[in-house]
Design a protein around this nucleic acid. Sequence first.
DNA 1: GATTAAAATTGGAATTGTTCTTGATAAAAT
DNA 2: ATTTTATCAAGAACAATTCCAATTTTAATC
Lengths: 141, 141
Amino acid sequence: MHSDTHHESLKIPDEIRGLRMTRQRGEVYRILAEEKTHPTANEVFMRVKDRLPNVSLATIYNCLEALVQHGIVRQVNFDREPSRFCSNLADHGHFHDASTGVIHDIHFKPGVRLSDVLDLPDGALIDDVEITLRGRINSDS
Amino acid sequence: MHSDTHHESLKIPDEIRGLRMTRQRGEVYRILAEEKTHPTANEVFMRVKDRLPNVSLATIYNCLEALVQHGIVRQVNFDREPSRFCSNLADHGHFHDASTGVIHDIHFKPGVRLSDVLDLPDGALIDDVEITLRGRINSDS
DNA sequence: GATTAAAATTGGAATTGTTCTTGATAAAAT
DNA sequence: ATTTTATCAAGAACAATTCCAATTTTAATC
């Protein structure tokens, strides 16, 4: 243990992909990197306030937008619920467990290519894929 | 030609899956069945007004909700954009062409099972799948 | 067919997540 | 040190949707 807080803190560089890592952007990113719970903007806000008491919700939105636009975090939407954010950049989907509310990251099985699985229109160039599953986990199986 | 309007109109039963087909629900459903453009609530509203000038937007929302809840139409969400609705009940995804704004229905290739493609948690029971693609169509290919 | 009961519709107000605006701060460049 | 530029804060504004109370329509019963 050597950091100034009692948990291991990530080292965040001054700049990522051309985005200047200000204090508030760094804190927003830290939350997403530490927690894998896909928090909403408001949840991030509450957690960042612990370290930056004067931060505003607008700033959280600004930071999240900047991070998303620079491809540093992903924005995930379920239906019309508040957007959620995660720092897992690997191509993955999300399974929303309706009984617990927990969101699990879902990955493709190795070797699967989207075009093998889906009937895409001729010439379709895919920029982005979002796979969302809703359901529950049957504990006794 | 025998209907009272100049285009072929679908025959809509008095009741579908236990949902009473009122005038406004019928008109809302008709729009979705005729058009495959995945309209928003507001777009449905404007089209229904042609036939039912006094209809209110709240009613459109009510009707859409009733239809969705009874499994008669599907609600589709892209990011945080307004919800869209479609009457195609077959299991399918949506490809959002960024250059034209057009939404194409995407189907699985025959014989593909979700569990073959995705690494699902043990005991996961999937109620609903949503696959959203964003991209563009390369005309010269 | 009139009467009652239940469901649906309407119009507007309220809500909610998010974005915008403006002025203040901080950081970088000169 | 001064100017320029980017970022932040606070609250107002916004847009999609939902809620609410009052009215209308439909169905059920007499």
